[in-house]
Amino acid sequence: MRRMLLGLVAAVALAGAAPAQEVLPPEPGIETTIQSQIDAFLRDDLDEAFGYAAPSIQGMFGTPQNFGAMVRNGYPMVWRPEDLRFGDLVDMPGGLAQTVIVTDGAGVEHWLEYRMTQTDAGWRIAGVRIVEAPGLNA
């Protein structure tokens, strides 16, 4: 489990800061996938939540339980959000990235970048990273 988490952290670190990209119109399928995964987390339905992860993520974690533990420990704001809204969708090298603004139970806002991939089963989540909210790097 520790090796998987370190691998995920390394992959996120190697991604680095992304240059500005053209904003695309909203993609309802992407928003539905993300919302459905979060709804599954709120119901503690790890099997369903794991199903919205891309095959590469499923292979990395192996089981819904391992995946759920990673989300609970690494992304508590996703595990139990108080509110969420969708920001920009951009085309980036390697796929589309959807910004999601999540408010946690303490009222703190978190900006996340969801990397999305199209599969035969529809849109799947290929990775999530916490990003800095615009305007905070002045």
Rank of each mutant, 00 (worst) to 15 (best):
8 L>A: 12
59 G>E: 13
63 T>A: 00
30 I>A: 13
35 Q>K: 12
125 I>Q: 06
96 L>F: 14
122 G>Y: 14
77 M>V: 03
102 V>H: 08
104 D>E: 05
32 T>I: 11
14 L>F: 07
116 M>D: 02
100 V>H: 06
2 R>W: 07
31 E>I: 03
74 G>R: 00
84 L>Y: 15
120 D>N: 13
11 A>H: 03
29 G>Y: 09
46 L>S: 13
2 R>D: 10
1 M>H: 02
131 V>Y: 00
40 A>M: 04
80 R>N: 10
33 T>R: 11
131 V>C: 03
98 Q>P: 04
91 D>L: 11
1 M>F: 02
48 E>S: 14
102 V>W: 01
17 A>M: 07
6 L>F: 10
120 D>C: 01
138 A>I: 08
63 T>R: 02
84 L>V: 08
45 D>Y: 05
9 V>N: 00
36 S>A: 14
67 F>H: 11
133 A>G: 15
133 A>H: 06
82 E>S: 13
41 F>H: 10
109 E>K: 12
59 G>D: 13
23 V>A: 15
31 E>M: 14
65 Q>G: 00
20 A>R: 08
100 V>I: 11
85 R>W: 05
42 L>F: 00
25 P>Y: 06
60 M>P: 01
79 W>P: 01
91 D>R: 12
25 P>K: 09
59 G>L: 06
27 E>F: 11
5 L>S: 06
26 P>C: 13
138 A>F: 04
84 L>C: 08
103 T>Q: 15
70 M>N: 05
40 A>Y: 09
114 Y>F: 14
26 P>F: 11
1 M>N: 02
58 Q>H: 07
124 R>A: 14
72 R>M: 08
16 G>M: 10
128 V>W: 04
29 G>I: 10
6 L>A: 14
26 P>D: 11
80 R>L: 10
137 N>K: 12
99 T>Q: 12
39 D>Q: 08
104 D>C: 03
7 G>R: 13
94 G>S: 12
20 A>P: 01
103 T>V: 15
55 P>A: 06
3 R>T: 12
6 L>C: 06
51 G>F: 00
116 M>R: 01
89 L>Q: 09
91 D>M: 07
91 D>K: 07
20 A>F: 05
67 F>N: 10
9 V>R: 14
50 F>P: 09
133 A>D: 01
34 I>K: 13
126 A>L: 08
79 W>Y: 12
26 P>Q: 12
138 A>G: 11
44 D>I: 03
13 A>L: 14
89 L>D: 07
5 L>Q: 07
118 Q>S: 14
123 W>V: 06
106 A>Y: 06
95 G>P: 08
24 L>H: 09
52 Y>T: 03
2 R>L: 07
96 L>N: 09
71 V>W: 06
138 A>H: 06
39 D>M: 05
47 D>A: 15
92 M>C: 11
87 G>E: 05
76 P>S: 05
41 F>Q: 00
119 T>G: 10
20 A>T: 12
70 M>F: 13
133 A>E: 08
123 W>M: 06
3 R>I: 06
67 F>E: 02
33 T>K: 12
87 G>W: 01
116 M>G: 00
51 G>V: 05
68 G>K: 07
120 D>K: 14
